[in-house]
Design a protein around this nucleic acid. Sequence first.
DNA 1: ATCCACCTTCCCACCGTGGGAAGGTCAACC
DNA 2: GGTTGACCTTCCCACGGTGGGAAGGTGGAT
Lengths: 149, 149
Amino acid sequence: MPQAKYFEMSEARSDGFLNIGEAAEASGVSAKMIRHYEETGLVPRAGRTVAGYRIYRASDVHVLRFIRRARDLGFTMKEIAALLGLWQDRRRASADVKRLATKHITDLDARIAELQGMRSSLEHLVHCCHGDERPDCPILDGLAGAGRA
Amino acid sequence: MPQAKYFEMSEARSDGFLNIGEAAEASGVSAKMIRHYEETGLVPRAGRTVAGYRIYRASDVHVLRFIRRARDLGFTMKEIAALLGLWQDRRRASADVKRLATKHITDLDARIAELQGMRSSLEHLVHCCHGDERPDCPILDGLAGAGRA
DNA sequence: ATCCACCTTCCCACCGTGGGAAGGTCAACC
DNA sequence: GGTTGACCTTCCCACGGTGGGAAGGTGGAT
């Protein structure tokens, strides 16, 4: 998979390769994270120039962009690995993808519900707090003990 | 602040102290996290028995419970440190607490909105996917490129 | 005296991301 | 051809919060 280590930078460039900074720019994934993804095996090892610079083709950038978008949708790394696998498997069943995505929606729903629960409890406390220079404060009292915070 | 290091365990117990496991049980904060909070300075160093066991009074447990509830409401450690400071400052103005809490609500709102954005984008894609044994899949296509994923 | 549950410290892991040091390279400009 | 500045390389460290586990010491009950 990875290209052998033979390109001069100039040669690579004229063959349409990008270095990591350019790939980062083009994909929206930081150079740091590109290296990280490589290290964790999410993406295959990049080709290198003779000087050791990583080089990327348009298709590699494409993959990175895919990852970026999946992260933007809140998929975990594991899920993204699975999605990438499906993406690159031309025999996949779309049902498999849909299942993954649907499960992720329920995960998102759970997180949203959790945050909304926090929000409403806190809202309640804030609502009870006069919020002036006096020290007595239902918010602190709520945290300190009494009820459903 | 921290008690000197003079108690036998039995003596401490008869004086109403709890060991870390009991304090964890009573506060809902794990022993691991209690030690962690101590190490990071969120709570003062606990007293010790001669054998080195940490010992906790009811008031310490009270503080831990406060922290627990604040975490349940999604406050960060920094915010909790601030809340604890206000809680223990009898000259506080409730307005300060309210400000902190209100800001936290807007943070929660931002996170909720972010997750809802993900949810709706993903929902859209899922909606478009027939989800059968065929390989073509709008979800993957969406991630791969075209539009607002 | 023995046993088991608990305590202690210490280090490592997760996930995703960023910062920065130390050293090598590329490209452009004079 | 040399200098310069932007970029690359690897390596380690940090964050938030939490957990796991090893190795060794104690508590309390039998």
